[in-house]
């Protein structure tokens, strides 16, 4: 027992000294001067499918505004919306569906109406090289084929449902994943043969998966709205970030990732 206590004390001491170090090094950076007016920390809650693009856009934004430190929290849009309406401190919310955004704007937690900044559509993500020869949505119904979908509570699941209904295809998935990245990782791990994910997610994982386009996905295009939040601790940086996301350079990043312009 004594040994355990000593170990715990040591770990705690390390953790505390570690914290001290990091705050020491970050102070001078925060004090650096810049041309733009915005500064401070900016917290952005964004749909999981925006991970790669927003990481890049965030870096570009920080380069343009050296006094700002952007922190992203990615997750299923619905869960993020739930966090916002429960009072999570954040500045900007970018959702993968207008329906999810509506829960935030309806609750009066956003500044006005959200703006759609990109669109995304679904593809069938399959194991690299497409060993099962999947070509269409209807191929997903083949017996013995393991398919992952998103749970219908999250936008990619709602879109998958819509696309499957439009194609009049009945797929029996083996699992309903909690967000699009989780569905994709099941394909990457080889646990399922195919998953319906966003084109951008398949594109971000080209090393492990192939994305197969299908015509019915145009019937289930997802609009991505973005908005500044009313309780934003840093409203000026929030407004600057939302404006930046809709600017030319940021749109280029998003289009390169596979999104479509609104």
């Amino acid at each position: 027992m004594k040994k355990i206590l000593t170990a715990v004390a040591m770990v705690a001491a390390l953790a505390i000294s570690g914290c001290g170090d990091s705050s020491d090094t970050s102070t001078p950076a925060a004090g650096a001067s810049s041309a733009s007016g915005v500064s401070g920390n900016l917290t952005v809650l964004a749909a999981a499918s925006l991970t790669e693009s927003f990481n890049k856009i965030g870096k570009d934004f920080e380069t343009a505004n050296p006094n700002v430190k952007v922190t992203f929290s990615y997750g299923g849009s619905s869960g993020l919306a739930q966090q916002i309406t429960s009072g999570a401190p954040a500045d900007v919310f970018a959702s993968a569906s207008p329906a999810t955004m509506k829960t935030v704007t309806d609750a009066g937690d956003a500044n006005g109406e959200a703006t759609v900044f990109v669109k995304n559509q679904l593809v069938v993500a399959v194991t690299k090289g497409n060993p099962k020869g999947i070509r269409t949505l209807a191929d997903l119904t083949e017996p013995g084929l393991k398919v992952a979908l998103c749970a219908e509570q999250v936008p990619c699941g709602a879109a998958a449902r819509k696309a499957l209904a439009a194609a009049n295809v009945k797929v029996t998935p083996v699992t309903l994943e909690q967000d699009v990245k989780a569905a994709l990782s099941k394909v990457k791990l080889g646990e399922v043969d195919a998953a319906l994910v966003y084109r951008t997610d398949a594109k971000a994982a080209t090393a492990d998966v192939d994305g197969i386009e299908f015509p019915e996905s145009s019937g289930a295009i997802n609009d991505y709205p973005i908005v500044t939040l009313k309780s934003a601790p840093n409203p000026s940086a929030a407004a600057a970030f939302v404006a930046y996301v809709q600017s030319g350079p940021a749109l280029d990043v998003l289009v390169e990732a596979g999104f479509q312009k609104p």
Partner: peptide, 16 residues
């Protein structure tokens, strides 16, 4: 994974 009736236990149902 998560599938109602097969692998969706109560904590998973709560989360979703």
């Amino acid at each position: 994974g998560n599938f109602p009736g097969r692998t969706q236990t109560m904590p998973l149902a709560v989360y979703l």
